[in-house]
Amino acid sequence: MVDVTMTVNGVSKSGAVEGRTLLSAFLRDGLGLTGTHVGCDTSQCGACVVHVNGQAVKSCTMFAVEADGATVDTIEGQAAADGSLNTIQQAFQDHHGLQCGFCTPGMVMSAAALLRDNPKPSEAEIRDYLEGNLCRCTGYHNIVKAIMAASGQDVAAIAAE
């Protein structure tokens, strides 16, 4: 076992991990941050996306020891301390961007990475960016709509057909 320390959602966290412990496992089992979901565990579905040093990564396909010393942001750090949702989360709620909600943590974290790099993405750019995030409920339409709304764009033009 090796000791790792990382700044998770702004707070320094430490724990002992094996070499093979995945970052997703450390977050969920080690720190109790079960908002990061593990859907496929094969880096296909994107439910486990978190930010490591500001970059979106699939936490099921990175070892916890590789994140030693890093800054990690998860879905638990997205809402304000009083529980009020951030802009992206609120837009998902307003535009029905989730049904079962399993993929939502990864969707929100991917959306946050996209909007930081590209504050006004087109519908096509959003769909392209979400290539690695699978949703089996919504058909993606309302997810795309929510992200466009979160970026301050008019979503009337992409009203559900």
Binding site: Q55, A56, L114
Partner: peptide, 9 residues
């Protein structure tokens, strides 16, 4: 290649 999260690693 892959998707954005894969390209970051």
């Amino acid at each position: 290649i892959g998707d954005p999260a894969v390209r970051n690693r």
